[in-house]
């Protein structure tokens, strides 16, 4: 994802998340600094979720590669033994 795409998505996400009801009391700080804090935290949130999916995807790919390799090896072995 390019930084330009990210830059266009982030403000929309910030707006969306600000619309979700919060358990916090009414905000007292000025809206601009609040938005900056939310955006900073959003970066961490995006990183965390990216890491989770990347790790799980890599594991799934590695598992699938290992399974395919072993299935192939077993098939070849059976053919060689005439089973």
């Amino acid at each position: 994802m390019t930084s330009r795409t990210l830059a266009s998505i982030l403000p929309a996400l910030v707006t969306l998340l600000q619309e979700i009801p919060s358990t916090a009391a009414a905000a007292t700080a000025d809206p601009a600094s609040q938005a900056a804090i939310v955006e900073r935290k959003l970066h961490f949130l995006a990183w965390a979720y990216t890491v989770v999916w990347v790790i799980l995807a890599l594991y799934l790919v590695s598992l699938s590669v290992r399974l395919r390799r072993l299935s192939g090896a077993l098939r070849r072995l059976r053919e060689r033994l005439g089973l």
């Binding site: 998340l17 979700i20 919060s22 358990t23 989770v52």
Partner: peptide, 21 residues
């Protein structure tokens, strides 16, 4: 996680990491 649960009061949106952590 992103559209229904409320935002936690002290930590803000970053607390949503909790739902996968």
């Amino acid at each position: 996680v992103f559209a229904i649960v409320p935002t936690e009061e002290k930590m803000g949106i970053v607390q949503r990491i909790f739902y996968f952590h």
